[in-house]
Amino acid sequence: MRFGFSFDLHRLVEGRPLKLCGVEISFEKGLFGHSDGDVGLHALIDAMLSAAGLPDIGSLFPDKDPKYKNIDSTELLKQALSRIKEKGYAVHQIDLTFVCDRPKLSPYYELMKTRIAELTGISPFDVGIKARSAEGLLLEENKEIIACFCLVVLKNSH
């Protein structure tokens, strides 16, 4: 077994859809980013890459590269999964914790678990998703953010 831990955060802005774990969330703002800003998938990708001894998400998918502009993060996850498979690993378990004051994410937990399971080829039972309020502490000059922490367990696929 190999363990990886990571986090990601992005600012909420007007004019973008909000996607978390590959699921569109009904909200008036979306996450700012070079890609779609999906902090759930970004944290997962980085944790997987770390567990497999691979370079981080910014090294493999740099925000200076125009081919990643507005890319759907599920595509980045697929590429990362291919890389960990080449190293002889497969995803065994995923645990994600979101930190945000708005929107309320609990109505989307099952959709997000199902989507992550579909993308990674594991059971929804092996995907944990929860959210915690930041108690207003993540507001800076009226800027809201969503953060996500991820712990991933990889297993040897041989």
Rank of each mutant, 00 (worst) to 15 (best):
L77D: 11
L81N: 02
L139T: 13
G30A: 00
Y89V: 02
I145C: 09
R102Q: 10
G15K: 08
L96N: 05
I129K: 04
G53P: 02
F125M: 09
L20E: 02
A131F: 12
Y68R: 00
P62N: 11
K104D: 14
E140P: 00
I57E: 14
G4C: 00
E118P: 00
G4E: 01
K29F: 02
C148W: 06
P66A: 08
L54Q: 03
A51S: 04
F7N: 15
V127D: 04
L41R: 08
Q93I: 08
D72N: 15
V127Y: 04
D8Y: 14
L31G: 00
F149W: 12
L105I: 05
L18A: 03
E86M: 07
P103H: 05
R115N: 15
A43T: 07
V91G: 05
G121D: 06
S157Y: 02
D56H: 11
H10W: 02
N70P: 00
R2P: 01
F32H: 10
L81Q: 06
P62S: 06
K104I: 13
L138Y: 14
I129Q: 06
N142D: 15
H42E: 15
Y109H: 09
D65W: 04
E118N: 13
L111H: 12
I129W: 07
F7T: 14
L31D: 01
I84L: 12
